[in-house]
Amino acid sequence: MFRNQYDTDVTTWSPAGRLFQVEYAMEAVKQGSAAIGLRSKTHVVLGCVNKANSELSSHQKKIFKVDDHIGVAIAGLTADGRVLSRYMRNECINYSFTYESPLPVGRLVVQLADKAQVCTQRSWKRPYGVGLLVAGLDESGAHLYYNCPSGNYFEYQAFAIGSRSQAAKTYLERRFENFKDSSRDDLVKDALMAIRETLQGETFKSSICTVAVVGVGEPFHILDQNTVQQMIDAFDIVGEQEDPAAEPDAAAGQEAAAEPSAAADQGGSTDEGVAPMDI
């Protein structure tokens, strides 16, 4: 009758040493539409794919400005993402009230991860169903972090989350060694290329993606659609010409690619292929 005895609440261990509810939450991140991030020494670029829930609706916002020096891109439950963004905005503004200086990115990320961790250890709570790419600039330079529903966080040179993100990851892995000394515009170009990798069949145009930049002398801001379109045209990366490039992610992207966020409720039906804990 019961397929899984050990996934009825977050705090219950499986004999194999897994927390299924936490893994389902991470599955929600995978189902959300893709978000990518990459950084040089001086800049961080975030990008995401905008997918509308239905033919009749608009898409949801996936990139949020937290402060002049920090921004996030999310994949998973947008509602959870907004709650966490508000929390981060609060922390930033309180810090600058007290110290009149920007909150170090690493500290904000730790606080955020601690918040997520608490939800994995309380029976009456549920983990956040959202993964956050946190881009920021502080005294020690440009940073890109990934924050996971499990309460884990990692710092990256470049990373991608969400549906079909494996293709973007492959692209980024091939090229990340050059990112460190990249110019801002090259970084944006690579961001666009990585976003394109996550598309399935659609034509790559500015209306289906959002790009944001933060860097030295450049407060976090979302690039407006015209600028993005111009860059797409300038770089001549309209896409589709090399459609097969989307293949490598066949394993991870799976059926979910079509429906963005709000799909976490299906997490329970995922079979043995549940996410490993190491992310």
Binding site: F97, T98, Y99, E100, S101, P104, G106, R107, V110, D138, E139, S140
Partner: peptide, 18 residues
Amino acid sequence: WDDGNSLGPKEVHNYLTR
């Protein structure tokens, strides 16, 4: 925090003001 960041004079001054 042990993360390489530290409060400078400007931060301490503002804290004291508050």
